[in-house]
Design a protein around this nucleic acid. Structure first.
Lengths: 169, 169
DNA sequence: CTTGGAAAGTCAACAAGGCTGACATAAAGT
DNA sequence: ACTTTATGTCAGCCTTGTTGACTTTCCAAG
C-alpha cells in the first residue's frame, strides 16, 4: 500500500522498492527459505549419519568430477582440516574415490563412486523437487528475477565459483 | 537433457525453466548467496564475541517487541535449551530485557534494551546495505520474482511465521 | 642436484550451536 | 488437589567450524 502513494520526491518512484520494509522482507524471506531449502536433504542425511558438510562435498564432487582437494577447499570456503574430516569418512565409506594426479602427483582428484552417486541423486532429487515446486508456483519471470537477485548478492569471489559451475553445466 | 532438446511434446515450451540445469543453478545460487547474505553480520558479531544465533534472536525480538520465549522458540525452530544459552548471555550483557507477563505471569516478554537496539541496527544496516545493492542491481521486477520464489519454497509452517511478520511491518 | 614451496594429510585442542534427557519452579486451569 | 503450561537449568553428546604445528610427497627453479 505504501508503495502506491505518489507522495515521493523526484526520482523516488524508481527507488520505492528499496524501502527498509521491502529490504526487511527480503532478508526474512532468505532466512525462512534457506531453512526450507536444506530441510529435505537434512532428513535424508540423518538416516546415513551424515551432515550438511558431507552433502556439500558430495554435491561439488558430482558437479566437477576429478576436481582437486584444493579446488574443493576454495569452493566450500572451509579449512583443510575441516574438509578433511568429512572427506575421510566419505572415502572410508566408499562414497568418494581419491586418485593421485597424473601430471602433478601431489594432487588428489576426487570422484564419486557408484554408491556416492546414489546418495547424491537422492539428495539432489529431494532438493530439486522443492525447487521445481517453487519455480512452478512462481512462474518463469519470477525465476529469472530470483536468480538475478541472488547473483547480485554474492561477493565477487563467490560469484566466480558460481559462474565457473554455471558454465560447466 | 531430454527437456532441452527441441523435441518436446505439447506444452514443453512453458516448462523450459524447469530443466534440471535450471533447477541446479537455482540450488547453487541459493548456496553461494546465503553465504554472502550472512557474511557482513558475521563480521560484526565476531567483534562482539556473538554468533549467528545471537543475531537471529536479536532480529526477531526487535521485529516483535514483547514476544514470549515460546513464540521466539517456534519462530527460530530450535530447542529451548539451545535458545536459552544464547538468551542468557544477551540478558546478562544487557542487550535484552525479560519482563514477567502481566496477564500470565508464567510468560516472559522479551525486549531489546537501548544497547541491544544499537547492535541490532548495526547488524541490519549491514545486511540491508547488501540487500539494497542486490535489489538495485537486479531491478524491481527481479525483486518481485525473488520474493515470490522464496515464499513458494517455504514449508507452510515456516511461511506462517514469515507472513505473520510480513503483515506486522 | 639441492632446495624452496606447494598439495595433501594428520594430530591436538578448542568453540559455537545444534540435540536429548531429566528435573525444578511457578502459575494457570480444571 | 491435581494437571498442564511456560520457563529455566544441568549434564552430556554431536557436527562442523577454527588455529597451530608438523610430516610426506612431489614439482620446479636455482
Amino acid at each position: 500500500m505504501a508503495e502506491g502513494s505518489g507522495a515521493g520526491g523526484p526520482g523516488s518512484e524508481a527507488l520505492l522498492f528499496l524501502t527498509d520494509d521491502q529490504l526487511r522482507k527480503g532478508i526474512e524471506a532468505m532466512f525462512f527459505a534457506y531453512r526450507a531449502f536444506t530441510a529435505d536433504p537434512d532428513r535424508i542425511l540423518d538416516d546415513h549419519a551424515y551432515g550438511r558438510a558431507h552433502h556439500r562435498a558430495i554435491h561439488f564432487i558430482n558437479r566437477q568430477p576429478g576436481l582437486t582437494v584444493n579446488t574443493l577447499l576454495s569452493v566450500l570456503g572451509v579449512t583443510k582440516q575441516s574438509l578433511n574430516r568429512v572427506l575421510r569418512t566419505l572415502i572410508e565409506d566408499g562414497l568418494v574415490e581419491s586418485r593421485v594426479g597424473r601430471q602433478d602427483k601431489r594432487e588428489r582428484h576426487l570422484f564419486l563412486t557408484a554408491k556416492g552417486a546414489d546418495l547424491e541423486r537422492a539428495l539432489s532429487d529431494a532438493q530439486r523437487a522443492r525447487m521445481r515446486a517453487a519455480y512452478r508456483a512462481a512462474g518463469p519471470a519470477a525465476v529469472a528475477g530470483f536468480r538475478q537477485v541472488l547473483e547480485a548478492m554474492m561477493d565477487p569471489d563467490l560469484r566466480r565459483h558460481y559462474l565457473a559451475l554455471k558454465e560447466g553445466g
